[in-house]
Design a protein around this nucleic acid. Structure first.
Length: 431
DNA sequence: TCTGGGGTCCTAGGACCC
DNA sequence: TCTGGGGTCCTAGGACCC
């Protein structure tokens, strides 16, 4: 048995935990650049604000709805996430942290009434950190995900499911008849692993609900779709096919990409931006003790604008894999110079580190001289100083020194304080 | 003025090898 | 008249996830 625990409307919930006046109001959290909605309160969903809806269109369409929009505060969400995960770990012996706001719990050996246990855990999370959660229980990860979906829907849309399934739902505890009723009332697109494309294709084949998908022959699923869908069907039928990952696997590629606050045409600010992205990516790379053998750099104009479009990417191989910021930044800038064309209004750029390998499994080679010096200690020291004294304490000068005044910086006009990670922002309790 | 960022896996086709 | 079999690696594109 597995549980899936996840925070409802997580980013909005984090904001509400520190600003209770936001409760009951339509609230949305915006993507970088205050671009589109990436988290919506139930009230905002009820107003019809879609996931990913551009904020400027929402504002234009619903000027009087009283929507509160906030810039994303990922520092806050990351910290709230680790608090959520430590409490959620109490549900069972194994935990797989699946995303910033959800984790699977392996329940092998847990005795007693699982629904009761889940309800008490949910109450604890709500009381300790103020985040409302939904908890789904099922025999496989896909079934636990589905149960979680039902728990949240029953909570948000009364009448969609029997009320006793709201907030905590254990699919394994239903009678076959009740289970069939619930699965027949659930759209096939709600299943984990069935995206919009495959949902459409399935409906065309007469597979419209989860109940239909459960009855599908896995062999047919494989032939007409892929092994992915076959696995999903088998999981729905109760056969565990998706391994439980209790230790996070190291990344196979690491990216840092950003849309700019305003279009950038000149080379110089692009060099700054790409330097910074490569530095950030290099930090993440060192955090997982890996080295990269290739660096990909890309720039492109905005596909939403008229005018000449340009989009190119280039991969630069490194002579030997490295985690040294200076070498990675160098490669990224060489890539940028190779693909840069003057005259285009670039909207976005990014750097990806590819072909990652563990730092201690290097390929031995002849020393040919003229090597870049090994600066592992320097990098470790820079990372420690930045961790201790804050991001940006030590940077490579090619990333520019003007801080937020850089022309390419993203817009974040509606950001809330870093309540839990910055001394100046810690809320005061007045006696 | 204005549309995010960061990942994973699968598949098909081409190049290449013996 | 007639032209094999078996395999790997790489890349691009698609689909999915949050």
């Amino acid at each position: 048995m597995y549980a899936l625990i996840d925070g409802n409307n997580f980013y909005v919930a984090c904001e509400r935990a520190f600003r209770p006046s936001l409760k009951g109001r339509p609230v949305i959290v915006l993507s970088n650049n205050d671009g589109c909605a990436i988290s919506r309160s139930n009230e905002a969903k009820a107003l019809g604000v879609a996931m990913g809806a551009p904020w400027h269109l929402v504002r234009q369409k619903l000027p009087d709805a009283g929507i509160v929009a906030l810039s994303a505060n990922f520092t806050l969400y990351g910290d709230m996430s680790s608090r959520l995960m430590s409490i959620a770990a109490g549900m069972g012996p194994e935990q797989e942290i699946y995303s910033i706001d959800e984790c699977f719990i392996g329940l092998a050996g847990v005795r007693g009434d699982l629904v009761d246990r889940a309800q008490r855990l949910r109450e604890r999370i709500l009381q300790w950190i103020g985040i409302p959660c939904g908890i789904g229980l099922g025999a496989t990860k896909t079934l636990a995900k589905l149960a979680n979906h039902i728990a949240k829907s029953a909570d948000r849309k009364p009448g969609s499911y029997p009320p006793e399934l709201a907030r905590v739902c254990n699919l394994a505890a239903l009678t076959p008849a009740d289970l069939d009723a619930v699965l027949s009332a659930t759209d096939v697109g709600a299943v984990w692993g069935v995206g919009p494309r495959n949902a459409e294709k399935l409906r065309a084949l007469g597979v419209a609900t989860v109940a239909d998908l459960v009855r599908m022959d896995p062999v047919v699923a494989r032939m007409r779709f892929s092994v992915m869908l076959e696995r999903t069907v088998r999981e729905l039928q109760g056969m565990a096919c998706i391994p439980f990952e209790d230790a996070p696997a190291s990344k196979k590629e690491i990216a840092c990409t950003r849309s700019f606050g305003r279009a950038v045409t000149e080379l110089a600010p692009l060099v700054e931006a790409v330097s910074e992205f490569a530095m950030r990516a290099a930090e993440k790379l060192r955090r997982q003790n890996s080295v990269a053998a290739q660096v990909l750099t890309f720039v492109h104009t905005s596909p939403h604008k008229t005018g000449p479009q340009y989009s190119r990417a280039v991969t630069m191989p490194l002579r030997r894999p490295t985690a040294d910021s200076a070498q990675l930044v160098n490669a990224a800038i060489r890539g940028l110079r190779a693909i840069y064309r003057p005259g285009y209004k670039m909207a976005k750029a990014g750097v990806m580190l590819l072909d990652l390998q563990p730092e201690n499994v290097g390929q031995a080679e002849l020393e040919l001289g003229e090597d870049e010096p090994d600066r592992g200690n320097l990098m470790t020291t820079i990372d420690r100083l930045n961790q201790r004294y804050g991001k940006g304490t030590l940077v490579l000068a090619s990333a520019g020194m003007a801080g937020d005044k850089r022309v390419w910086s993203m817009r974040q006009e509606l950001r809330t304080p870093q309540y839990t990670t910055c001394w100046e922002d810690v809320p005061l309790a007045l006696a």
